[in-house]
Write a protein that binds this DNA or RNA. Structure first.
Lengths: 413, 413
DNA sequence: AATGTTTGTGGTACGGTGCAACAAACGTGA
DNA sequence: TCACGTTTGTTGCACCGTACCACAAACATT
């Protein structure tokens, strides 16, 4: 017989779902009066009072005397997420830098540390060592351990969602890294470690707290060195069967094009990625962040070859983006990473291709906008992902787990 | 304040969800013993008994004495969906033909009528007239009206899910058709009329009852005259902000390619669609179904130019498919419509491109398989879509609606 | 200061599922 | 043929969660 299709509901699931809805609301949307929560959920006043009291008892939310804003009637107390009530450790691994932060409920960054790498891409051991060291200083603060509910990691390359395994990261030269397991062993915290692709987490952050708030269908295009996308469709992240969805960088755009690090040729990434920009500008394609900065500064001053190098990305970017728009029908495309920095120079060329190639149905044109969270998007997305089990079940979120590498049931969330 | 994010749960929603889970199970998976339902849902024996009794009271399911299959213990009665308990009218509009059917719960086709068009594509009025006439004979059967819960329509071209509006259908020469409204006015049945794109509905049918049963992540590639895709991700259909997701036919594959009916140029559809096949074979690109049959028969006998014409589709098909696989990370790609008929000849070339261009992470290779439902897929998907409101809320499914054009809350299901 | 409005609070009612005991229906083995 | 173990339906009751109602508290208005 088939596995459980839809597990049945009972009073426990009802309670859990309602607690989850309230905690998620104050976590994502900020402080809310209790009467607002009544209106939002449609639940009864007494029920909301009871639920909020339970969340407050767990230390997850706090209530403050409501201030009357000139309205008649008894003021409703304000409920807000307690940023000390639960914490996560968020890690963002990029090709050129590493960020580690402790983040409190409500997505409040408590403390953050960043380390830049220059020259050659760092080895895996170097990165793991840095994560270890930087985390230790953050976790040493009093009370942090007790309130820690998870670790979220944004990684370069395709990540298998089931167990946070990174099969390869061509732009870092890594292969076969059981990333979640390595980090879990390293930190030994007894909380779940969730590893996801940086683009997927960037999309999550922009959707929940950035340029895509309130937009349930968006495509987030991210360029670190390679190019990836995170897709939110119907308010849910698109993950795919194993977690590899969104690998737009390796769509073939020219069957006879240049070889790509992935083994194929003519991948989109070879014509719109960081290396393509540097090559266009006559710089060393592997020059890294400093060379990119140099090209950007030149382009901003109007230096012709630099401007031309940037603008040469616009057409293939626009053509590929048009395909993505036809595929996903998003309301918004958010440009992240390098694309966000290049946005002013890229937009005219991109818009030209979109106008020509997006299926012109009745819709208002797709809005293409730069990221609002910038380089922090993957980090904040990692934090949000780590909070997810607590938000889904506020009473069990603190349970220490035996298996610390992701969670089967929550693999595709 | 923001709109309701997550409506609260109470005992009513619990009851509704559990009734829905049971009805959906017997509708989709066929007859189930009550003890199976207990195991599947995790609900208590008494609860399942009560729920089944309520569904039986509504005439939606029936119980039969269970036959003991040599196992000890009291036999559990078999619960099966009552195919007379609820009916939908399913309509499938293709470029070359039209099918109308009444379909009972459990997706039992009660009666079906098909009409082929030859020569020029039919006018909108002709099609609507045929739908009217064919439906009337099906609906004239005694008892049909009372048990009818909805109308599902598979249409050519992008369909706006909110209201079933077809902005244009280039392969039929239609523009600006409020299809759901037109059909609702035509039939005047007082039940919701849901119009969706044929590829989206084909994907739904293959997912629920065809080649993709049990596969929660699949891409369904459908070729009627144009090329479209229906995507199921995480068990849910991908719809996009307005319902236009999956328009793969108009991804640019050659920026300088031939012009397409959509106004752009170099669209995928121009190199892998029906017209491309006929052009490759030296036939009239607009020759329609008879010319296609002629090419297929020649190819099957090994006639070289016909074989070459088919095989010439394989490479661009494989390249584009590789991009889709990288984007969606499906477990299965289902070939529908013309692609299913061409599958044996196309597969070698397609597999070559996939092997080269799909990001070779640890996954087992994507399986590319032909449709199991063939030309019926969009029809059955339309039926499934029409059953959805009943399955989601078995007690209210029979309520006659004032607004018969789709449903706001269920627009993106 | 009186009044109307809005909201929190506490007690009770209602609905849904879970549980335990019993009965029914089967196969097995003496 | 009958006693026994096993599995499952059935029934009455307990438990849990939310809804409802009445009342009190806290505000603005007049």
């Amino acid at each position: 017989m088939r596995a459980i299709a839809v597990p049945g509901s009972n009073s426990e699931t009802t309670r859990r779902d309602n607690l989850s809805a309230l905690l998620r609301e104050v976590h994502l949307a900020g402080p809310r009066s209790r009467s607002d929560l009544v209106a939002l959920t449609g639940l009864n006043r007494s029920t909301v009072g009871d639920l909020v009291a339970e969340l407050a008892g767990q230390g997850l939310v706090r209530e403050q005397r409501g201030d009357s804003l000139g309205a008649p009637g008894r003021p409703s107390p304000t409920v807000h997420a307690d940023s000390d009530g639960a914490l996560v450790l968020a890690v963002s691994i990029a090709v050129h830098w590493l960020t580690v932060a402790t983040v409190g409920l409500g997505c409040v960054v408590v403390e953050r540390v960043r380390r830049d790498w220059s020259g050659e891409p760092p080895s895996l051991d170097r990165v793991l060592g840095d994560i270890h060291e930087m985390s230790r200083s953050l976790l040493a603060r009093p009370g942090v351990h007790e309130r820690l509910v998870g670790v979220g990691v944004a990684a370069v390359g395709p990540v298998r969602s089931r167990d946070g395994y990174v099969h390869f990261a061509p732009n870092l030269g890594w292969t076969a890294v059981p990333m979640a397991e390595r980090i879990a062993d390293l930190l030994d915290l007894g909380v779940p470690v969730m590893v996801r692709n940086q683009s997927d987490l960037g999309a999550r952050a922009e959707h929940l707290r950035g340029a895509g708030v309130g937009v349930d269908d968006l495509v987030y295009l991210y360029c670190d060195v390679g190019v990836g996308a995170g897709i939110v469709s119907g308010g849910r992240p698109l993950v795919g069967a194993r977690g590899y969805a969104g690998e737009v960088g390796h769509m073939t755009v020219d069957p006879e094009g240049s070889p790509c690090g992935c083994g194929s040729r003519g991948c989109w990434e070879t014509v719109v990625g960081e290396r393509a920009l540097l090559r266009n500008a006559g710089h060393d394609p592997d020059g890294g962040v400093h060379e990119v900065d140099a090209v950007l500064r030149s382009a901003e001053t109007g230096e012709p070859t630099a401007v031309a190098a940037v603008e040469a990305l616009a057409r293939p970017l626009g053509i590929g983006m048009a395909g993505l728009v036809n595929l996903f029908d998003p309301r918004v495309v958010v440009l992240g990473g390098l694309f966000a920095r290049l946005a002013p120079l890229l937009m005219p060329g991109v818009e030209t291709e979109l106008a020509q190639r997006v299926l012109s149905v009745d819709r208002e044109p797709v809005r293409v906008i730069p990221s609002r969270l910038g380089e922090d998007a993957p980090l904040l997305g990692a934090a949000e992902r780590a909070f997810e089990p607590l938000l889904a079940d506020p009473l069990r979120g603190f349970a220490r787990v035996a298996t610390v590498r992701d969670g089967g049931a929550m693999a595709n969330v």
